[in-house]
Design a protein around this nucleic acid. Structure first.
Length: 109
DNA sequence: TGCGTGACTTCGT
DNA sequence: GACGAAGCCACGC
C-alpha cells in the first residue's frame, strides 16, 4: 500500500474540512496549496471519495464560483441549497459575491 | 496490461 | 480580449 496517494486525497479532505462556515474555495486554490496547481482535477476527483467523510464538498467550487460538482451530488439543487443555507448567495448554480465568500487556504494558512 | 475519462486550471496563440 | 490546447494523477473498463 502506498499511502502517498492517499496523502494527496487526505490533504484535500483536511483543507476542505477547514473551510469556515459561509465560505467557499476553489479546486485550484487547494491544489495550489498542495503544490500541484495543475492537478486541480485530482482535487475534484478526491472529492469523489469524500463520501463518508466530513468533507463539505458543497463548499468547493471551480474558479468561476460555478457549482460544477453539483451533478455529483444527491440530486439537483442540493449543493446550491446547502450553500444558500449557509448564507452564500447562489444563482443558477453560480456563487454571487464570490470575492466575499471566497476562502483561500494559502492566504489563511 | 493499456487506453480513456474526469467535481479544473493555466499557458499559448 | 477570446479561444484552443496541454497538463496533472488516479480510477474504471
Amino acid at each position: 500500500m502506498k499511502p502517498e496517494t492517499l496523502n494527496f486525497f487526505d490533504k484535500v479532505y483536511e483543507v476542505a474540512k477547514q473551510i469556515p462556515y459561509g465560505r467557499v474555495t476553489s479546486y485550484g486554490a487547494i491544489s495550489n496549496y498542495l503544490g500541484a496547481a495543475r492537478s486541480a482535477r485530482m482535487v475534484g476527483y478526491a472529492m469523489n471519495g469524500s463520501g463518508g467523510k466530513d468533507v463539505p464538498a458543497h463548499r468547493v467550487v471551480n474558479r468561476k464560483g460555478l457549482l460544477t460538482g453539483k451533478h455529483h451530488f444527491d440530486g439537483t439543487n442540493l449543493m446550491q441549497q446547502l450553500l444558500e443555507s449557509e448564507g452564500v448567495k447562489v444563482i443558477d448554480n453560480q456563487i454571487q459575491d464570490l470575492d466575499t465568500v471566497f476562502w483561500d487556504p494559502n492566504e489563511i494558512l
